[in-house]
């Protein structure tokens, strides 16, 4: 497989996790592409405008990338923190539409601000890695960390509170869970992850403009999660990987490519209403692996 495509897929998986986090406590937020755009602009502006970030030789310094990711994630997180409380009082489709509006407002801002390069955006973004393989390794580490954090949520009090809100918000509040705070944490975490991903993606894509954060992207990232399954983090990761790769893998069919892609998006939820990854399938898979392990180590207690 081609490393550049793999990198796209990994970025897709990270964005899917960003949509998954609020959804884990029942909040349908489609703001991910907006925060992704913000993170990307931070990285693009710093690495093209500040000499220390741009580096001197063919590649820009790796620590600079880490700082950009931290700053991009922080800015996205701050925006989420500022608007989170009022917005998260909305539910269901109302929250979805409010976050779509947010993405559009951010897009118009990015297009009109004096320093974001207008329609052309920012280009000539320096490269921290000489090859796509470098990006892939780096992103894999990032994705692994993100997955590990999501995995930790399963056992942490916070994670259980999130699930309780998803199942029944009123009941969760009545057993003493601070529901507004929990929802806000999920929303901010989602924004930080999207911002960090954007900062990395801006380098990988060489250029950044206001079109990256659009309505289409909102729906596509939601499709990642719906497709993969929203109960467990592996679902969005798989959904993000698969749906990013699909249009590329469908290239041999030529003109029918996007028609088939639409067909997959249409049929996927019909055949897998819970997404690809469900608790049952995971248990089955887990048991299968467990048995395999058991055979190899028959003496294990």
């Amino acid at each position: 497989m081609d490393a550049a495509l793999l990198e796209q897929m990994l970025l897709g998986a990270l964005l899917a996790l960003s949509v998954y986090l609020p959804l884990r406590c029942g909040q349908l937020s489609l703001a991910t592409p907006g925060f992704y755009a913000v993170g990307g602009y931070v990285a693009a502006l710093l690495s093209t405008g500040v000499p220390a970030f741009a580096g001197t030789g063919a590649t820009s310094p790796l620590p600079a990338l880490l700082v950009e990711m931290a700053l991009g994630g922080s800015l996205a997180g701050l925006i989420a923190l500022a608007i989170g409380r009022p917005v998260l009082r909305l539910r269901g489709i109302y929250l979805a539409i409010a976050t779509i509006a947010l993405v559009e407002i951010l897009r118009v801002l990015n297009l009109n601000l004096p320093f974001t390069g207008g329609a052309m955006g920012i280009f000539g973004i320096p490269q921290p890695f000489a090859h796509p393989e470098g990006y892939v390794l780096f992103t894999l580490v990032l994705l692994a960390v993100a997955c590990w954090l999501c995995q930790r949520l399963e056992v942490l009090r916070l994670g259980r509170a999130m699930l309780a809100i998803r199942d029944d918000e009123l009941a969760a509040a009545s057993v003493g869970i601070d529901t507004p705070r929990t929802k806000l944490i999920a929303f901010v975490a989602s924004a930080v992850l999207a911002g960090v991903t954007g900062a990395l993606a801006a380098h990988f894509l060489n250029a950044w403009n206001a079109r990256v954060g659009s309505f289409d992207a909102s729906i596509t990232t939601l499709a990642f999660v719906v497709f993969g399954g929203s109960r467990f983090w592996l679902g969005p990761v798989l959904g993000g990987l698969a749906l990013t790769a699909l249009p590329e893998l469908l290239r041999p069919v030529g003109d029918l490519r996007l028609i088939l892609f639409g067909g997959v998006i249409l049929l996927g939820p019909l055949f897998f209403p819970q997404g690809l990854v469900t608790a049952e399938r995971l248990r089955w898979l887990g048991a299968l692996l467990g048995r395999g392990r058991g055979r190899r180590k028959p003496l294990a207690p």
Binding site: I219, A223, V226, F261, G263, I265, L266, G268, P269, P273
Partner: peptide, 14 residues
């Protein structure tokens, strides 16, 4: 019902 957002998007793309 959330799924209908995605299936209808698929129908639109087609």
């Amino acid at each position: 019902p959330l799924l209908a957002l995605i299936t209808s998007l698929g129908a639109g793309v087609i």
